[in-house]
Simulated assay, not measured.
Amino acid sequence: MFSRRHPYLFFFLISLALFTGLVLGAMALAGWMGSRSGDFSGEAVGVVEIEGAIADSRDILEHIRQFREDEDIKAIVVRIDSPGGAVGPSQEIYREIRKTVDTKKVVASMGAVAASGGYYIACAADGIVANPGTITGSIGVIMGYTNFRQLLDKIGMVPVVIKSGPYKDTGSPTREMREDERELLQSITSGIHEQFVTAIAEGRRMDRAQVAQVADGRIFTGEDAKARGLVDRLGNFEDALAWAGQLGGIDGSVVPVYAREEKLSLLRYLMSSSLSDLISKVVHPGIYAEYRYLPQGR
């Protein structure tokens, strides 16, 4: 048999066939995903979805920009189902929404969770709709890392570090943190927190002192958040869609248009920077700031 006479060639051909099938399947799925928006005529409301941890803002920024420049899109709904994430991407999305509300109405719709960085983004919109049981709030900043010093001492490993300055390895998991390093990181965390409070006060048109009272990291239900002025209306996604249509001047039923994904988006996702981000955190964990809701037990 061919497989016995040429085992290596046989293995190569089988591997090639499997890889080709995977690529073609991914292309087909990506093409299907890319056509979600479909063709439409007339006035519509654009829908931008933000799901999971916020780590990269590029696609979301592009979707918001496309809807902002599309004359047939009369308003935008930003659907948020996220516990938050990295500071930079959250601020970039906030900024893009603030640029958009000058020319087109934007409504934020909260799903199961829209906390920390998810709320940061929502407060940039013209209005916020949350379910009564939505978990939101968690207004604050967190930095964290795991210290392996005691474990290394037990197994007899001695890390060697060569650095150009005293703060270059701040957050090293292999040694105790110095007090001056702790003060530095606390200063950075407090500074970013002040940015968070300022953004909410500006976006929600609230008194800064009022925001500061609830900006201690606590979470709220959507119902409680509305009572505190952090949310405008209670309702589901369809309610947010209808409100956006009204703000955009649409008469009758509202047609939702979802952002079109780029072709081969699945392949790009599989080969994206997510893997490199994971590797970098394993190789050099360090410390990084996040707007993230961390429920107990996680």
Rank of each mutant, 00 (worst) to 15 (best):
G217D: 11
I54N: 01
A259T: 04
A122R: 00
K74G: 00
S276Y: 11
A130G: 10
V197N: 03
F2N: 10
L294K: 12
E261D: 14
R58T: 15
G248M: 04
Y293Q: 09
S276Q: 04
V255A: 03
W32L: 15
E71G: 12
V158F: 06
D39H: 07
A209H: 14
Q91D: 09
R233K: 11
R65P: 12
P285Q: 01
M110K: 02
D70R: 03
A53T: 13
L24P: 11
E194S: 09
F10M: 06
E179Q: 07
S116N: 05
D251F: 05
R182N: 07
R149V: 12
F11L: 15
E96Q: 10
I188A: 09
V77Y: 03
Y258L: 07
I14F: 05
T103M: 00
K74C: 10
K168R: 15
P256Q: 07
I219G: 02
F148S: 08
E71Y: 03
E71F: 06
V101H: 00
I60S: 01
S274N: 14
G42R: 05
Y94K: 00
Q213V: 14
R4K: 15
I219P: 02
F10I: 03
I139L: 11
T198Y: 13
F40E: 10
A209C: 02
G42S: 03
E194W: 04
D224P: 01
V77K: 01
E92I: 08
R298S: 13
S41E: 15
K168W: 14
S37A: 10
E202Q: 04
V113C: 08
L247T: 10
A112R: 13
R36I: 14
R268E: 13
G248R: 07
E194Y: 00
S272P: 12
V254G: 01
F19A: 07
Y258Q: 09
G84C: 10
E238A: 12
Q186N: 15
S274E: 15
Q296V: 15
A53H: 07
Y293D: 02
V87R: 09
A75E: 02
Q66M: 14
L61F: 07
V283F: 02
R98Q: 06
G117R: 03
R79S: 13
K104P: 09
F40Q: 12
I162Y: 11
A55W: 01
E92H: 05
L152H: 04
A112G: 13
G222I: 02
A44Q: 02
Q91P: 04
S15K: 12
A75P: 07
Q213D: 12
M271C: 05
E49R: 12
S190K: 14
D70Q: 11
Y258G: 05
G140M: 07
P285I: 06
A289I: 02
A240S: 05
F196P: 04
V161Q: 03
V160A: 05
K281T: 14
V129Q: 04
R4N: 13
G203V: 06
T174E: 02
N236F: 09
Q186W: 14
S82L: 08
P285L: 06
G249Y: 09
A289M: 03
L16S: 12
A289F: 11
I250R: 01
V282A: 07
V231L: 00
G297V: 08
L247G: 04
L13E: 01
I54Y: 06
E290T: 08
V45S: 10
L266V: 13
Q210K: 13
F148N: 13
T146N: 12
H6S: 14
Q66A: 15
L18E: 00
L151A: 11
G156Y: 01
L275S: 15
E238C: 03
V158L: 11
